[in-house]
């Protein structure tokens, strides 16, 4: 494992200093995020919609329903609804798990306390999530952009190294060194993880400064998503390089475009016609997007699915990478 860090550093610097790879890995996803973010997000304020049922009129945001059954029937139309069932109990149905919804519930509590007896009586709030998958357009684009960036980093870098051009050039020089394929692929993967982390930090910073975006973050899940997604896309890059050694790069560029449209990066795949929706099941990026959304509290998939996806992507990536490494280092050109 000699010079593991040195090689990883070199690969990292090469990727960051090279205008082409910097553009595709870092800038392009960022540009897409800013562009789509500006188009689809409402920067002026909240788009959240609320409704409540109460016997008394409350001075809070939201539509007041006088028919409890009707509100329950129409609960999916809102981000959250509240049913005031007794003086000291509120049942809240949440379509969306967000600090704005939590603030609304809090203001509802305060308003109800004020109206009832002007005292600080603690009311019971029974929260019932209905469909937490519902998310804002900006969050949708943000998480999609993260997946897009990781896809680009993993796939294009691998193709650059593993395709014919790479094998006949740079790799040939490494083959005459006392360097094992394992060391090489470890360094390569490590450098791609680093680039992935930097890219995601940059996108997150942009989301904060440009869109004042607040979103729940689970660092543990984010790290798992980055590592497994990068490994998965590296594996995908190895497949393309082995199957199409001379044209892998061109194919990757076509797939990049296809994945943008069929993986739910910028808009939900639900909008797609049925047969195209079926195709989307075969795009690895769709699963990456789901993993990133899960990491940011947007639970379109269950925790079990999250771990199944990440384990599958990691194992596939490791297997293909070690296979690719052997081909790269031991196969005669």
């Amino acid at each position: 494992m000699r010079n593991f860090i040195g090689l990883a550093r070199a690969l990292f610097l090469q990727a960051f200093r090279n205008k082409f790879s910097f553009f595709f890995n870092i800038l392009l996803p960022l540009i897409f995020f800013i562009m789509f973010g500006l188009v689809f997000s409402d920067l002026s304020g909240s788009n959240f919609s609320f409704a409540y049922f109460s016997d008394i009129d409350l001075n809070i945001e939201g539509v007041r329903y006088r028919d409890k059954e009707l509100l329950l029937k129409e609960k999916n139309k809102f981000d959250a609804i509240a049913i005031v069932v007794a003086d000291d109990e509120i049942i809240v149905y949440k379509n969306f798990d967000d600090y704005t919804v939590d603030s609304w519930i809090e203001s509802l509590k305060i308003e109800l306390e004020r109206k009832l007896n002007n005292s600080k009586k603690i009311l019971e709030v029974d929260e019932k999530p209905i469909n937490i998958a519902s998310i804002s357009q900006l969050e949708y684009i943000f998480t999609g952009t993260l997946a897009l960036s990781i896809m680009s980093i993993g796939m294009f870098s691998t193709i650059n190294i593993f395709s014919t051009r790479g094998k006949s050039g740079l790799i040939k020089r490494f083959k005459v060194l006392p360097l094992s394929p394992t060391s090489f692929v470890f360094s390569f993967s490590f450098s791609q993880f680093l680039i992935g982390f930097v890219s995601i930090i940059l996108i997150r910073i942009t989301s904060i400064f440009l869109f004042s975006m607040e979103i729940k973050e689970n660092l543990f899940y984010i790290v798992i998503s980055i590592i497994s997604s990068t490994l998965g896309m590296i594996g995908f890059g190895v497949i393309l390089s082995v199957l199409f050694p001379r044209i892998a790069s061109s194919i990757a560029q076509v797939l990049y475009t296809i994945f943008i449209f069929f993986s739910g990066i910028y808009f939900p795949t639900d909008f797609l016609p049925k047969f195209l929706k079926f195709i989307s099941l075969f795009t690895p990026v769709k699963y990456m997007v789901n993993m990133f959304r899960y990491s940011y509290g947007i639970k379109e998939i269950s925790q079990i699915n999250f771990f199944i996806y990440s384990i599958f992507m990691s194992l596939l990536g490791i297997f293909l990478l070690s296979y690719g490494g052997k081909i790269l280092f031991y196969k005669e050109e």
């Binding site: 070199a10 690969l11 610097l13 090469q14 960051f16 200093r17 090279n18 006949s168 050039g169 740079l170 040939k172 020089r173 005459v176």
Partner: peptide
Amino acid sequence: VCLQKTELFKEL
């Protein structure tokens, strides 16, 4: 070893 054609990391 000095190969007939050597590619290096051009950005280093």
